[in-house]
Amino acid sequence: MADTDAMVLVTGVSRVFGRRIAIDRADLTLMRGRILGLLGASGSGKSTLLRTIAGLESIDAGTIAIDGRVVSTPGLALAPENRRVGMVFQDFALFPHLTVAQNVGFGLKGRADRDAVVGRLLERLRIVDQSQAFPHTLSGGEQQRVALARALARDPAVILLDEPFSSLDGSLRGEVREDLMETLRETGTSAIVVTHDAEDAMIMAEDLALMDGGRVIQTGTPRDLYNNPTSVAAARLLGPLNLVEARVHQGVATSVLGQKSAILPDGPVRMGIRPTDLRLTGPAQGLQARVASVSFAGGYCVVRVKTDTVALSLHLPGEAPRTGDVVGLTVDPARLMVLPD
């Protein structure tokens, strides 16, 4: 991929707070016009990485370039106000002393087209009615739209979204997410979305970067990462996972779940399977297990089963067995992941 297509290019960036390494030699690329998801558990360094891109934190090693221009290296930091980034904060950070319109127009100080831009954004984001309201009177979804409008107003090169849905209730979440994606696509904005929620990340992002312990551990499309994680940490980040002990011998990994070829040296490894990729067959077929518990979760049931050696979790649509039943499990070998220990 050519560098000219990269809107944000993060190369070997580290950030140290005292003795704690918050970001450890991270590499990241946001392609022009695309949405990059930055997925990690809390404390993984993803928000810090976002803040270094915004210029709100300095860096101790590496470089950050936005639209081909180096904005951060150790000892040099372009001030956030000069970076052409727009940021949407976790708590939205709306200014309580300004109206919605004033909030949106905040970054357009001194520009003649200010009112026009604000009006257009308010309309696009369906908050025209609230333009004279103060932020604390708005719903969570409305506040988020104001925050997005405010960030878009300056026509930034890139929008950075820090956990944009974490302060929203579940029912609102999906709707707001759709809205947000639509707006970003319509405006052709390049965006980085930081989240700890795998579903949010996979739905929103066209490209995904996984962070763990301050490092970017894997990048790729959501589907690719979901199916082919290269580590336990990456696999876990993207969704619920069953893990069992396995062993590689001459390029083949073997566990109770089955066999799969693996380009790994001989020795102990782990084998993973998503709860959705386990199926029931009739009794006396497949891997024999006893049902330990069944919980109804709406569209599916969470079924916990135990074999002689392992405990597994299944997400089963439709009819579920009962506690105490003996069942047989089948595994599609294609869905098995072999993960280095």
């Binding site: 709100l56 106000e81 727009g86 709306l94 905040f106 970054g107």
Partner: peptide
């Protein structure tokens, strides 16, 4: 984050102090 927001919206540290 309000101060950070003001910064990313084009205000300097002093500007953010004055405006926010």
């Amino acid at each position: 984050s309000m101060v950070s927001a003001a910064r990313t919206l084009g205000r300097s540290e002093t500007g953010a102090a004055l405006a926010v």
